[in-house]
Design a binder for these strands. Structure first.
Length: 304
RNA sequence: GGUACCAUAGCUCAGUAGGUAGAGCAAUGGACUGAAAAUCCAUGUGUCCCUGGUUCGAUCCCAGGUGGUACCA
C-alpha cells in the first residue's frame, strides 16, 4: 500500500486552510503546515493562523510550535516534516500538507542539501562587514573563496552573496561543492494540488482579509512585538508595515495600504513560483469534489 | 439656465512654443538550496473625451458637442 502526501499550494488568502480541511476530513487524516510564519505561537492575526474551530475540524501539525525567538529555517522544516510524515504514515495512508512557504514545500518534496547551520557570530560579522564596507567587499571575498558560485550568484542580492561566503567560511569547503542539485527520494508519493482564481479575485480577497485582520486587532497584536521588531520572525508582512506606523513614518491608513500591497505582491510571487511546477494540478478553491476525485484517480492508478 | 475652469496611463497629475507623450503611486514579468511573508532583477501598459475646422501634420489652435467641478441665478 502506497503512502500519499497531498500537497496543497496556492497564493495567500485563496482558501488553502479551508480546502485542506475538507480534504483531510475526507481522508480522515491530519494536516502538516508548511508556513514559515504560522509556526510562531505569538503571531496569530497577522499570519492568518487557522482559527480554534478550524484547528478542531482537522488535526494540524507545525502550527504555533515555535517562538518568534527561535531559529527556524527550511532545513528545520525538512527535518520536522519528515518526522511528522514518518510518524503519521504509520496510521494513515494519506496526509495533507499545505502552506504558502515556497521553499519549505520544496524542502519536503525534493529535499535540500546538507549544509551546517551558520554560527550567529559569523553571520553578524559578515553583516557588519556588509554594512560598513559594502557589497563589493563581500563579493571580492566570495570570488576568492568560491569562484564557481561567484559566476552563478545574483551579485546584486546581498543575502545570497553573504550566505555563500558564510558557508565557505563555516565549512572550509566551497558553497558550490555542497550544492548537489539532486532530488531526495521520499518513502511516499506526492500529489500536488494548486488553488487559483482570477488575479483580481485573489487581490479582492486579500484586501478584504487585511481589513478583517485590522478589525480583529492586528494593530494591538503588532504593538506587543514592536520592541522586538528586529527579529527575523517579525520581518513579516502585516507587522513590519505597522512598525513603520509606530515609528511615525506614516499614518495607520498608509500602513494598511502597505500591508495590502505587500500581501498582493507576495501572492504574485507565490504564483510565479508554484506555476513553474508542472506536477501541480490546478483547481478553484471551492471545487472540493473535483479535487478529491483527481486525488482518488491518482491513488488508484498508483496502487493498481 | 448663465459664466468660468477642467477632460492625457488603473489613480493623481505633468507636458508638447503644432511633429502621436512622461512622472509618482498602483500594476506586470522573472530569479530563488538553512533569514524565503526574506532578498534581488527587469518592465510604461495610452482612440491624449467626441465631431468637425485650420494645417503638410492637431493631444496641443478654433468651433460645436458630451461629461465633471466651482460660482452666479
Amino acid at each position: 500500500m502506497h503512502k500519499f502526501l497531498i500537497v496543497v499550494v496556492g497564493p495567500t488568502g485563496i482558501g488553502k486552510t479551508k480546502t485542506s480541511i475538507e480534504i483531510a476530513k475526507h481522508y480522515k487524516t491530519d494536516i502538516i503546515s508548511a508556513d514559515s510564519r504560522q509556526i510562531f505561537k505569538e503571531l496569530k492575526i497577522g499570519t492568518a493562523t487557522p482559527s480554534e474551530e478550524e484547528l478542531r475540524e482537522a488535526k494540524h501539525h507545525n502550527i504555533g510550535s515555535h517562538s518568534i525567538h527561535d531559529y527556524y529555517s527550511a532545513w528545520e522544516f525538512e527535518q520536522d516534516a519528515l518526522k511528522f510524515t514518518e510518524e503519521l504514515f504509520k496510521t494513515h495512508n494519506q496526509l495533507v500538507l499545505t502552506g504558502g512557504s515556497m521553499m519549505y514545500i520544496d524542502a519536503i518534496c525534493k529535499g535540500i542539501d546538507e549544509i551546517p547551520t551558520i554560527d550567529q557570530e559569523l553571520r553578524d560579522n559578515l553583516m557588519n562587514q556588509y554594512n560598513t564596507e559594502g557589497i563589493d567587499s563581500i563579493r571580492r571575498q566570495l570570488k576568492q573563496l568560491d569562484p564557481v558560485f561567484y559566476e552563478q550568484v545574483d551579485l546584486m542580492n546581498h543575502k545570497r552573496v553573504i550566505h555563500a561566503v558564510e558557508v565557505c567560511l563555516m565549512t572550509g569547503k566551497t558553497y558550490s561543492s555542497l550544492r548537489t542539485n539532486t532530488v531526495k527520494k521520499r518513502p511516499f508519493q506526492i500529489i500536488k494540488v494548486g488553488l487559483e482564481l482570477e488575479r483580481e479575485e485573489v487581490y479582492n480577497r486579500i484586501n478584504l482579509r487585511v481589513d478583517q485582520m485590522i478589525e480583529m486587532g492586528l494593530v494591538e497584536e503588532a504593538k506587543q512585538f514592536y520592541p522586538l521588531k528586529e527579529l527575523n520572525s517579525l520581518n513579516t508582512v502585516g507587522y513590519k508595515e505597522l512598525f513603520g506606523y509606530f515609528d511615525g513614518d506614516y499614518d495607520l491608513n498608509k500602513a494598511i495600504e502597505l500591508i495590502k500591497r505587500n500581501t498582493r505582491r507576495y501572492a504574485k510571487k507565490q504564483l510565479t513560483w508554484f506555476k513553474k511546477d508542472a506536477e501541480t494540478q490546478w483547481f478553484r478553491p471551492n471545487e472540493i469534489a473535483k479535487i478529491i476525485s483527481h486525488i482518488d484517480s491518482l491513488i488508484l492508478n498508483c496502487n493498481s
